[in-house]
């Protein structure tokens, strides 16, 4: 049980939950507000992370300039996907976004010259030279730690990620209650009705998609900073579905459900690491990893059966026609 008592481990779990909060906040704006089924959110995360890393390593840009550009690139990707695809029906749109996310991953895997290929960012300067994009961030982390009197880098990261995540959750919550958010919620209910009330539905949807994509791009930046290295394998479609799980765990439509869902998911994921009592202790470590995901799968099914509205959702809203 040594890992359990390790502060570093729990800080790591917390950081990941914070990154997933940002990632899923984007989905909440897209789906919870605008009713968009984006199954390719991970692509925007990849675009954000890669844009930043490539600008820093290949163009020699300052990380502080490259980072906002990463977010902007993710937003631009959202715009490029949305302009043609948002004219499609919801379920067709969902498949196009999944397709887009696989295209991004394949391009990242095969365009070695641009992305470092399947080996990831370490090969950004070509093979044989270990490329690094993270030194500026680490210096900042160290400096901030000194200012705050915190020695552990993980704890500093935890504070930074969660400050940003909570601030943005709060902002998103306020946004949902503005007249703008009201139109989006209306579109979620019935796009034709809203369009018959004089609202340009397409433009609102596009805005929601772009905002959500930008948040995924931001999540991608933190992901890149946290691990100082990443590869196309980090952007599997499964990541998007983790986001959806968090969204539904927490509750659709409520911004504060996102950090709650992300924390719950993070701790579920972490807690299943500690199956070291019988019968699990009879299994070897690889099998235990399978059991972990299996248990998570069962928990999801159980949750859907017992509490389909999520932790913070309202049952009444589930049954209205």
């Amino acid at each position: 049980m040594t890992v359990l008592s390790s502060g570093e481990f729990w800080a790591f779990v917390g950081v990941m939950a914070g990154i997933y909060t940002l990632f899923t906040l984007g989905l909440q704006i897209q789906f919870g507000l605008a009713g968009l089924l984006n199954f390719g959110q991970v692509a925007f995360m990849a675009v954000g992370a890669y844009t930043m890393a490539i600008l820093v390593v290949k163009q020699g840009w300052s990380m502080w300039l490259a980072a906002p550009l990463g977010v902007a690139a993710a937003a631009l990707a959202g715009l490029l996907v949305g302009l043609p695809a948002l004219r499609l029906r919801g379920d067709y749109f969902a498949i196009v976004t999944i397709a887009f996310s696989e295209i991004v991953r394949w391009v990242a895997t095969n365009e070695d010259g641009l992305t470092g290929g399947s080996q990831g960012t370490i090969n950004l300067r070509g093979e044989g030279v270990a490329a690094q994009y993270n030194s500026q961030w680490e210096r900042f982390q160290g400096w901030l730690g000194e200012q705050l009197g915190i020695r552990s880098k993980d704890v500093v990261m935890l504070l930074v990620v969660w400050s940003v995540a909570l601030l943005l959750t709060w902002l998103a919550g306020r946004l949902a209650r503005t007249p703008w958010g009201r139109v989006l919620r209306g579109i979620r209910e019935d796009e034709d009705a809203v369009s018959s009330l004089g609202k340009p539905v397409f433009r609102y949807r596009l805005q929601a998609l772009v905002l959500g994509a930008a948040l995924a791009g931001l999540a991608g930046l933190f992901y890149a900073w946290q691990f100082s290295f990443f590869s196309p394998d980090d952007f599997q479609p499964l990541i998007t579905f983790f986001g959806w799980m968090i969204l539904i765990l927490g509750g659709v439509g409520r911004m504060w459900a996102v950090p709650v869902g992300a924390l719950l998911f993070g701790f579920l994921f972490a807690a299943t690491r500690f199956f070291d009592f019988p019968p699990f202790s009879y299994l070897d470590s690889a099998d235990r990893a399978y059991v972990r995901l299996l248990v998570i799968g069962l928990l999801i099914i159980g949750l859907v059966l017992v509490r389909p509205q999520g932790l913070l959702g309202r049952r009444q809203e589930m049954v209205l026609e």
């Binding site: 009201r182 139109v183 209306g186 209910e189 009330l197």
Partner: peptide
Amino acid sequence: RALTRLTVLDNVRLAAPSHPGE
């Protein structure tokens, strides 16, 4: 075509024209 998960008031407010807050 009521927007079912919006309040009755919001259903009407949403339809207001030229709202800068949108």
